[in-house]
Protein backbone atom coordinates (compact mmCIF):
# COMPACT_ATOMS: atom_id res chain seq x y z
CA UNK A 1 0.00 0.00 0.00
CA UNK A 2 1.45 3.33 -0.88
CA UNK A 3 1.26 6.10 1.72
CA UNK A 4 0.14 9.43 0.44
CA UNK A 5 2.01 12.52 1.65
CA UNK A 6 -0.89 13.69 3.85
CA UNK A 7 -1.22 10.39 5.59
CA UNK A 8 2.56 10.23 6.10
CA UNK A 9 2.55 13.62 7.82
CA UNK A 10 -0.46 12.61 9.88
CA UNK A 11 1.32 9.41 10.93
CA UNK A 12 4.48 11.32 11.84
CA UNK A 13 2.50 13.84 13.87
CA UNK A 14 0.68 11.06 15.68
CA UNK A 15 4.02 9.37 16.43
CA UNK A 16 5.45 12.61 17.82
CA UNK A 17 2.45 13.22 20.05
CA UNK A 18 2.54 9.61 21.11
CA UNK A 19 6.21 9.88 21.99
CA UNK A 20 5.73 12.99 24.11
CA UNK A 21 2.75 11.36 25.81
CA UNK A 22 4.88 8.30 26.49
CA UNK A 23 7.57 10.42 28.15
CA UNK A 24 5.11 12.26 30.40
CA UNK A 25 3.45 8.96 31.29
CA UNK A 26 6.43 7.63 33.30
CA UNK A 27 4.96 8.27 36.72
CA UNK A 28 6.66 9.63 39.79
CA UNK A 29 6.33 6.94 42.44
CA UNK A 30 5.67 8.44 45.88
CA UNK A 31 6.30 6.31 48.95
CA UNK A 32 4.25 7.10 52.03
CA UNK A 33 2.59 5.70 55.11
CA UNK A 34 -1.02 4.84 54.58
CA UNK A 35 -2.19 7.18 57.30
CA UNK A 36 -3.82 10.56 57.57
CA UNK A 37 -0.50 12.44 57.66
CA UNK A 38 0.08 12.78 53.89
CA UNK A 39 -3.38 14.35 53.44
CA UNK A 40 -2.24 17.20 51.14
CA UNK A 41 -0.94 14.56 48.72
CA UNK A 42 -4.32 12.85 48.73
CA UNK A 43 -5.98 16.14 47.91
CA UNK A 44 -3.53 16.92 45.12
CA UNK A 45 -3.99 13.47 43.58
CA UNK A 46 -7.75 13.45 43.86
CA UNK A 47 -8.12 16.97 42.42
CA UNK A 48 -5.76 16.32 39.51
CA UNK A 49 -3.15 18.90 40.51
CA UNK A 50 -0.26 16.60 39.56
CA UNK A 51 -1.75 15.95 36.14
CA UNK A 52 -2.29 19.67 35.62
CA UNK A 53 1.36 20.26 36.35
CA UNK A 54 2.26 17.63 33.77
CA UNK A 55 3.25 14.61 35.85
CA UNK A 56 1.62 11.29 36.76
CA UNK A 57 1.97 10.34 40.42
CA UNK A 58 1.65 6.80 41.73
CA UNK A 59 1.20 6.20 45.45
CA UNK A 60 3.20 3.35 47.05
CA UNK A 61 2.03 2.61 50.59
CA UNK A 62 4.26 1.27 53.36
CA UNK A 63 3.62 0.03 56.89
CA UNK A 64 6.54 1.81 58.50
CA UNK A 65 8.91 4.73 57.94
CA UNK A 66 12.20 2.87 57.59
CA UNK A 67 11.38 0.89 54.48
CA UNK A 68 10.38 4.07 52.63
CA UNK A 69 13.91 5.42 52.89
CA UNK A 70 15.32 2.04 51.86
CA UNK A 71 12.96 1.85 48.90
CA UNK A 72 14.18 5.20 47.62
CA UNK A 73 17.79 4.02 47.81
CA UNK A 74 16.89 0.82 46.01
CA UNK A 75 15.08 2.71 43.28
CA UNK A 76 11.65 1.27 43.99
CA UNK A 77 10.24 4.74 44.57
CA UNK A 78 11.28 8.15 43.26
CA UNK A 79 10.12 10.39 46.11
CA UNK A 80 9.22 9.64 49.68
CA UNK A 81 7.49 11.44 52.51
CA UNK A 82 8.19 10.12 55.97
CA UNK A 83 9.74 10.77 59.33
CA UNK A 84 13.39 11.74 59.53
CA UNK A 85 14.62 8.85 61.63
CA UNK A 86 18.13 7.86 62.61
CA UNK A 87 18.04 5.27 59.83
CA UNK A 88 17.07 7.95 57.33
CA UNK A 89 20.03 10.09 58.27
CA UNK A 90 22.33 7.09 58.10
CA UNK A 91 21.23 6.40 54.55
CA UNK A 92 21.29 10.07 53.65
CA UNK A 93 24.79 10.31 55.03
CA UNK A 94 25.98 7.61 52.66
CA UNK A 95 25.15 10.04 49.90
CA UNK A 96 21.94 8.39 48.85
CA UNK A 97 19.11 10.67 49.93
CA UNK A 98 18.28 14.35 49.67
CA UNK A 99 15.62 16.22 51.62
CA UNK A 100 13.81 18.60 49.30
CA UNK A 101 10.84 19.92 51.22
CA UNK A 102 8.86 19.91 54.46
CA UNK A 103 5.68 18.08 55.33
CA UNK A 104 4.23 17.57 58.81
CA UNK A 105 5.56 19.97 61.43
CA UNK A 106 4.96 20.13 65.18
CA UNK A 107 3.59 23.57 65.98
CA UNK A 108 3.16 25.42 69.23
CA UNK A 109 -0.48 25.51 70.26
CA UNK A 110 -1.41 22.91 67.72
CA UNK A 111 -2.06 19.66 69.56
CA UNK A 112 -0.55 16.90 67.49
CA UNK A 113 1.67 14.63 69.54
CA UNK A 114 0.84 14.21 73.19
CA UNK A 115 2.92 12.80 76.02
CA UNK A 116 0.75 10.13 77.61
CA UNK A 117 1.41 8.66 81.04
CA UNK A 118 -0.23 5.73 82.80
CA UNK A 119 -2.72 6.42 85.55
CA UNK A 120 -0.54 4.62 88.06
CA UNK A 121 2.48 6.74 87.20
CA UNK A 122 0.43 9.91 87.26
CA UNK A 123 -1.00 9.12 90.65
CA UNK A 124 2.52 8.40 91.86
CA UNK A 125 3.67 11.86 90.86
CA UNK A 126 4.49 11.87 87.14
CA UNK A 127 2.39 14.97 86.47
CA UNK A 128 4.66 17.08 84.30
CA UNK A 129 7.29 16.60 81.65
CA UNK A 130 10.25 17.51 83.81
CA UNK A 131 9.49 14.54 86.07
CA UNK A 132 10.05 11.94 83.32
CA UNK A 133 13.51 11.12 84.60
CA UNK A 134 13.81 7.62 86.07
CA UNK A 135 10.67 6.33 84.38
CA UNK A 136 10.11 3.91 81.52
CA UNK A 137 9.16 5.31 78.12
CA UNK A 138 7.68 3.47 75.18
CA UNK A 139 8.98 4.20 71.71
CA UNK A 140 8.64 2.42 68.39
CA UNK A 141 12.34 1.71 67.82
CA UNK A 142 15.75 3.11 68.59
CA UNK A 143 16.45 5.96 66.20
CA UNK A 144 12.79 6.66 65.55
CA UNK A 145 11.17 10.07 65.62
CA UNK A 146 9.77 9.17 69.03
CA UNK A 147 13.27 8.49 70.27
CA UNK A 148 14.35 11.90 68.99
CA UNK A 149 11.39 13.62 70.62
CA UNK A 150 12.15 12.08 74.00
CA UNK A 151 15.75 13.12 73.65
CA UNK A 152 14.86 16.72 72.83
CA UNK A 153 12.22 16.81 75.57
CA UNK A 154 14.94 15.76 77.97
CA UNK A 155 17.11 18.64 76.89
CA UNK A 156 14.34 21.24 77.09
CA UNK A 157 12.17 20.03 79.97
CA UNK A 158 15.25 19.26 82.00
CA UNK A 159 15.49 15.55 82.82
CA UNK A 160 18.29 13.08 82.21
CA UNK A 161 17.66 10.98 79.10
CA UNK A 162 20.04 8.32 80.39
CA UNK A 163 17.80 7.78 83.41
CA UNK A 164 14.87 6.95 81.19
CA UNK A 165 14.36 3.27 80.37
CA UNK A 166 13.43 3.14 76.71
CA UNK A 167 11.20 0.29 75.66
CA UNK A 168 11.02 -0.39 71.90
CA UNK A 169 7.50 -1.61 71.18
CA UNK A 170 7.45 -1.49 67.38
CA UNK A 171 4.15 0.36 66.92
CA UNK A 172 2.08 3.17 68.39
CA UNK A 173 -0.89 0.91 69.23
CA UNK A 174 1.49 -1.26 71.30
CA UNK A 175 2.85 1.86 73.00
CA UNK A 176 -0.61 3.14 73.91
CA UNK A 177 -1.71 -0.30 75.10
CA UNK A 178 1.41 -0.62 77.24
CA UNK A 179 0.73 2.72 78.93
CA UNK A 180 -2.93 1.96 79.47
CA UNK A 181 -2.09 -1.36 81.08
CA UNK A 182 0.58 0.28 83.20
CA UNK A 183 3.46 -1.72 81.78
CA UNK A 184 5.31 1.43 80.78
CA UNK A 185 5.02 4.74 82.57
CA UNK A 186 4.88 7.04 79.56
CA UNK A 187 4.85 7.26 75.80
CA UNK A 188 3.88 9.56 72.96
CA UNK A 189 0.96 9.30 70.62
CA UNK A 190 -0.89 11.54 68.21
CA UNK A 191 -4.04 13.23 69.43
CA UNK A 192 -6.40 10.81 67.73
CA UNK A 193 -4.96 7.99 69.81
CA UNK A 194 -4.00 9.90 72.94
CA UNK A 195 -7.32 11.60 73.62
CA UNK A 196 -9.39 8.41 73.66
CA UNK A 197 -6.78 6.84 75.94
CA UNK A 198 -7.18 9.70 78.39
CA UNK A 199 -10.95 9.55 78.11
CA UNK A 200 -10.86 5.89 79.12
CA UNK A 201 -9.33 6.85 82.44
CA UNK A 202 -6.31 4.57 82.05
CA UNK A 203 -3.94 7.35 81.08
CA UNK A 204 -3.34 11.06 81.30
CA UNK A 205 -1.89 13.59 78.86
CA UNK A 206 0.75 15.70 80.59
CA UNK A 207 1.91 17.82 77.70
CA UNK A 208 2.10 18.40 73.96
CA UNK A 209 5.37 17.99 72.11
CA UNK A 210 4.67 20.87 69.77
CA UNK A 211 4.51 23.31 72.67
CA UNK A 212 8.11 22.62 73.59
CA UNK A 213 9.82 21.36 70.47
CA UNK A 214 9.33 22.90 67.09
CA UNK A 215 9.97 19.84 64.99
CA UNK A 216 9.96 18.92 61.30
CA UNK A 217 8.31 15.57 61.81
CA UNK A 218 8.08 14.38 58.24
CA UNK A 219 9.81 15.66 55.15
CA UNK A 220 9.81 15.13 51.42
CA UNK A 221 12.94 13.50 50.07
CA UNK A 222 14.32 11.96 46.92
CA UNK A 223 17.59 10.56 45.62
CA UNK A 224 20.45 12.28 43.83
CA UNK A 225 19.76 10.08 40.85
CA UNK A 226 16.19 11.34 40.46
CA UNK A 227 17.29 14.96 40.87
CA UNK A 228 19.82 14.46 38.12
CA UNK A 229 17.60 12.59 35.68
CA UNK A 230 14.12 13.94 36.29
CA UNK A 231 14.39 17.47 37.63
CA UNK A 232 11.48 18.64 35.45
CA UNK A 233 9.15 15.99 36.75
CA UNK A 234 10.21 16.83 40.31
CA UNK A 235 9.37 20.48 39.79
CA UNK A 236 5.97 19.56 38.38
CA UNK A 237 5.42 17.24 41.34
CA UNK A 238 6.26 20.01 43.81
CA UNK A 239 3.85 22.39 42.07
CA UNK A 240 1.05 19.88 42.49
CA UNK A 241 2.08 19.30 46.11
CA UNK A 242 1.97 23.02 46.87
CA UNK A 243 -1.56 23.34 45.49
CA UNK A 244 -2.58 20.37 47.62
CA UNK A 245 -1.12 22.05 50.70
CA UNK A 246 -2.95 25.28 49.91
CA UNK A 247 -6.28 23.47 49.75
CA UNK A 248 -5.40 21.55 52.92
CA UNK A 249 -4.57 24.69 54.86
CA UNK A 250 -7.73 26.37 53.61
CA UNK A 251 -9.81 23.43 54.76
CA UNK A 252 -8.27 22.75 58.16
CA UNK A 253 -5.71 25.32 59.28
CA UNK A 254 -7.78 28.48 59.50
CA UNK A 255 -8.47 29.69 63.02
CA UNK A 256 -10.76 32.31 64.46
CA UNK A 257 -9.83 34.84 67.15
CA UNK A 258 -10.32 32.25 69.87
CA UNK A 259 -7.96 29.86 68.12
CA UNK A 260 -10.84 27.59 67.17
CA UNK A 261 -10.64 25.96 63.75
CA UNK A 262 -12.97 27.28 61.07
CA UNK A 263 -14.79 24.47 59.30
CA UNK A 264 -16.91 25.09 56.24
CA UNK A 265 -17.74 23.73 52.83
CA UNK A 266 -14.07 23.63 51.90
CA UNK A 267 -13.49 21.38 54.93
CA UNK A 268 -16.27 19.00 53.98
CA UNK A 269 -15.05 18.79 50.40
CA UNK A 270 -11.53 18.05 51.61
CA UNK A 271 -12.80 15.39 54.01
CA UNK A 272 -14.70 13.77 51.16
CA UNK A 273 -11.57 13.62 49.01
CA UNK A 274 -9.25 12.49 51.80
CA UNK A 275 -11.59 9.71 52.87
CA UNK A 276 -11.13 8.16 49.46
CA UNK A 277 -7.65 7.17 50.72
CA UNK A 278 -8.04 6.69 54.47
CA UNK A 279 -11.02 5.88 56.69
CA UNK A 280 -12.79 4.87 53.50
CA UNK A 281 -16.38 3.86 54.24
CA UNK A 282 -15.96 4.78 57.90
CA UNK A 283 -19.05 6.63 59.18
CA UNK A 284 -16.83 8.43 61.70
CA UNK A 285 -14.34 9.52 59.03
CA UNK A 286 -15.06 13.23 59.39
CA UNK A 287 -14.45 13.25 63.15
CA UNK A 288 -11.30 11.15 62.87
CA UNK A 289 -9.87 13.35 60.17
CA UNK A 290 -10.58 16.54 62.09
CA UNK A 291 -9.07 15.00 65.23
CA UNK A 292 -5.87 13.94 63.51
CA UNK A 293 -5.04 17.00 61.43
CA UNK A 294 -1.41 18.07 61.47
CA UNK A 295 0.38 21.27 60.58
CA UNK A 296 1.81 21.85 57.10
CA UNK A 297 3.79 24.95 56.34
CA UNK A 298 2.64 27.06 53.42
CA UNK A 299 4.21 25.98 50.16
CA UNK A 300 5.73 22.92 51.77
CA UNK A 301 8.54 24.93 53.30
CA UNK A 302 11.38 22.99 54.87
CA UNK A 303 12.59 23.85 58.36
CA UNK A 304 16.27 23.56 57.45
CA UNK A 305 17.52 24.56 60.87
CA UNK A 306 15.52 21.79 62.48
CA UNK A 307 16.82 19.18 60.06
CA UNK A 308 20.34 20.24 61.02
CA UNK A 309 19.37 19.96 64.69
CA UNK A 310 17.95 16.46 64.25
CA UNK A 311 21.03 15.26 62.43
CA UNK A 312 23.27 16.68 65.14
CA UNK A 313 21.27 14.92 67.86
CA UNK A 314 21.43 11.53 66.18
CA UNK A 315 25.17 11.97 65.63
CA UNK A 316 25.64 13.00 69.22
CA UNK A 317 23.77 9.92 70.43
CA UNK A 318 26.00 7.75 68.26
CA UNK A 319 23.19 6.55 66.03
CA UNK A 320 24.63 8.02 62.86
CA UNK A 321 28.20 7.07 62.17
CA UNK A 322 30.74 9.27 60.55
CA UNK A 323 30.47 13.00 60.02
CA UNK A 324 27.60 13.88 57.71
CA UNK A 325 27.61 17.27 56.06
CA UNK A 326 24.09 18.62 56.60
CA UNK A 327 24.28 20.77 53.51
CA UNK A 328 24.98 17.74 51.38
CA UNK A 329 21.75 16.03 52.32
CA UNK A 330 19.42 18.95 51.61
CA UNK A 331 18.49 20.36 48.24
CA UNK A 332 16.53 23.60 48.47
CA UNK A 333 16.06 24.04 44.74
CA UNK A 334 12.55 22.62 44.60
CA UNK A 335 10.58 23.98 47.55
CA UNK A 336 10.92 27.00 49.81
CA UNK A 337 12.52 27.00 53.23
CA UNK A 338 11.18 28.27 56.53
Amino acid sequence: MQLGRRSTIALAAAAAVGARGARAATPIRLGMLHTLSPAPFYLAQQRGYFKDAGVEVEFRFFQAAQPIAAAAVAGDIDVGVTALTGGFFALAGKGELKVIGGALHEQKGFDLTAVLVSKAAYDAGLTSLDKLGGHSFGITQYGSSFHYMVGRLAEIAGFDLKSVTLRPLQGVPNMVAAVRSGQVDATMAIASMARPAEASGDAKIIGWVGDLIPYQITALFTTGRVIADRANDLHAFCKGYQRGIADYRAAFLRFDSEHKPIYDAATDAAIADISKFVFTGDPKAAEKIKAGIGWYDEGGALDVADVHRQLAWFEQEGMVKGKVDPAAIIDTGFLPTR
Partner: peptide, 20 residues
Amino acid sequence: MIGAEKGIGAFVLAAGNLYD
Protein backbone atom coordinates in the same frame (compact mmCIF):
# COMPACT_ATOMS: atom_id res chain seq x y z
CA MET B 1 11.41 -7.13 69.27
CA ILE B 2 9.15 -5.85 72.00
CA GLY B 3 10.35 -4.03 75.02
CA ALA B 4 13.93 -5.32 75.03
CA GLU B 5 16.65 -2.80 75.69
CA LYS B 6 19.45 -5.32 75.73
CA GLY B 7 19.97 -8.54 73.88
CA ILE B 8 21.54 -9.61 70.62
CA GLY B 9 18.17 -9.74 68.86
CA ALA B 10 17.31 -6.24 70.02
CA PHE B 11 20.80 -5.14 69.00
CA VAL B 12 20.39 -6.57 65.51
CA LEU B 13 16.98 -4.90 65.12
CA ALA B 14 18.26 -1.52 66.28
CA ALA B 15 21.26 -1.71 63.98
CA GLY B 16 18.96 -2.60 61.11
CA ASN B 17 16.76 0.38 61.83
CA LEU B 18 19.73 2.67 61.69
CA TYR B 19 21.20 1.01 58.59
CA ASP B 20 24.26 0.39 60.68
